[in-house]
Amino acid sequence: MTIHHLDCASMAPVGGRALLGAGGRLTGRLVGHCLLVETDGGLVLVDAGFGTADVAEPGRLGRAFRAATRPRLTLEGTALQQVRALGHDPRDVRHIVLTHLDPDHAGGLADFPQAEVHVFADELSAARELATRGERDRYRPAQWAHGPRWAEHRTAGESWFGFEAVRPLAGTAPDVLLIPLRGHTRGHAAVAVRRGGTWLLHCGDAYFSHTEIDPLAPHCPPGLRVFQRLMAVDDPARTHNRERLRDLLRTRPDEVVPFCSHDPHEFDRLSGAAEPDAVDTAHRPAR
């Protein structure tokens, strides 16, 4: 499989490198790390970033979200345009696999109406029910008002490197797995994609900085620490899963390459690694 790393949700929150770990002195830098996977059965998109409708109508992202993240909304940055720039027909995106349904991950769904959208059932229920104030603030139903072809998955399946309840996605490439990592949201997931002899593990928002899963000296920039605690629906579960990811990196450094959605350091290291059937062991979080 050929795997492309795309930034589909660039953001520049106030805070700077000292608070957020990346960016300038006053303004931070966050990316929206998505994957485009070329398979024999068509294209698979992991997370969808901001969509063309978000660019045309930024208000649908919500005032609080825009104030906190300061999104950089351009048509060129959407998954739709990046798929086209790679020479593909967007209609060939057959599946979208979501880590969760926050607005910087689900905005591009409407740009691929033909795709089957894979998500954990708990996450879809949270987005539909909007049972809490936090969930009413974070989810933007306009992003899926077009009626996606949902494929709801239960957290039951096989075992993968000690992570329980891993479910292969029926109908996608055989080496794409959905892994529950509850904490940031009710149905938050990681997505594992086999590439040669290595697994790429898209951890979504299970952590925000590569320094958090450093096996030797883990730490989190203060601004990201506060933000993650505020956004988590289950912070003990989030921190527990982050520790499991750190252990995975420590014990399986040659087999699994974890990365999160928003760390520009990880994105910059991986975004050149799109050659098929190649494993670049340098593309992993700094130690």
Rank of each mutant, 00 (worst) to 15 (best):
H202F: 01
L270K: 08
R167Q: 13
H184A: 10
V256L: 03
A22K: 06
D254R: 11
P218M: 13
R167T: 15
P222M: 10
G87L: 06
R284G: 05
L45D: 08
R194L: 14
H184Q: 08
A274T: 14
E152C: 12
L75D: 12
V37E: 05
L245N: 10
L200Y: 08
G32W: 04
G183D: 07
F65R: 04
P90N: 04
D54K: 00
R133D: 15
R154V: 09
P58D: 12
G23V: 10
A170S: 13
R140M: 07
G107Q: 06
C203D: 07
D235T: 14
C8D: 01
R246Q: 10
D89I: 10
L98P: 00
A237V: 05
E76R: 13
A237N: 03
P264W: 01
D54Y: 00
D92W: 05
G187P: 07
G183A: 08
D54I: 04
Q228R: 13
P264A: 01
R29T: 09
T211R: 09
G147R: 06
R29K: 10
H153Q: 13
G147W: 04
A126F: 01
D247G: 12
L201V: 11
D277Q: 10
E57F: 02
G183W: 07
S261P: 00
G21C: 04
L201M: 11
